[in-house]
């Protein structure tokens, strides 16, 4: 299952369309802000939550309302089970410091959203092609104590 944590509706729709077109025929879940993303992953709140024993890929925007993408990344990666989820950061900035910080926190890949629509589509398509060959671990069970 592909999780798209992205506040911009248009971007989320574009990403989903292009991923589908490139052959990533999974189910997609849209998370509108950092809070929604954490609630989903940590199985909290009233909305849809993560289902046990399924593989997940998280596409994470950094500039998210409520809780920033960086914080989401930090919490996901400091959890014993959730840290297995491959996280691809999609951000509008290409600030080397931010790129470095995301990798320190444990993101798998950092992709800068290109402003050129053609390039943007191209990047998403290539990401899709890549995701089709990636082996994704299943995320087990209920909540475990976070890694200290």
């Amino acid at each position: 299952m592909i999780l798209i944590a992205e506040d911009d509706d248009g971007h989320a729709a574009l990403i989903e369309r292009n991923l589908k077109r490139s052959g990533v025929g999974h189910t997609y879940t849209r998370l509108r802000d950092g809070q929604e993303a954490l609630d989903f992953l940590f199985q909290k709140g009233e909305g849809a939550v993560r289902i046990k024993n399924r593989p997940y890929i998280l596409l994470l925007d950094i500039n998210l309302p409520k809780i920033s993408g960086l914080e989401v990344l930090r919490q996901v990666k400091s959890h014993a089970e959730l840290r297995k989820i491959p996280v691809t950061v999609l951000s509008t900035t290409d600030d080397p410091q931010e790129v470095a910080q995301c990798h320190v926190l444990g993101c798998s890949y950092y992709i800068t959203k290109p402003t050129e629509p053609e390039v943007f589509m191209n990047v998403i398509t290539r990401l899709g092609q890549f995701l089709t060959i990636v082996h994704v671990p299943h995320i087990q069970g209920n909540m475990m104590s976070p890694v200290s």
């Binding site: 911009d8 509706d9 248009g10 971007h11 729709a13 574009l14 509008t92 959203k113 290109p114 402003t115 050129e116 629509p117 053609e118 943007f120 589509m121």
Partner: peptide, 12 residues
Amino acid sequence: RSPLVTIQGFSK
């Protein structure tokens, strides 16, 4: 920039 990407993307 972000709405521009949306506009251009959906124009395509």
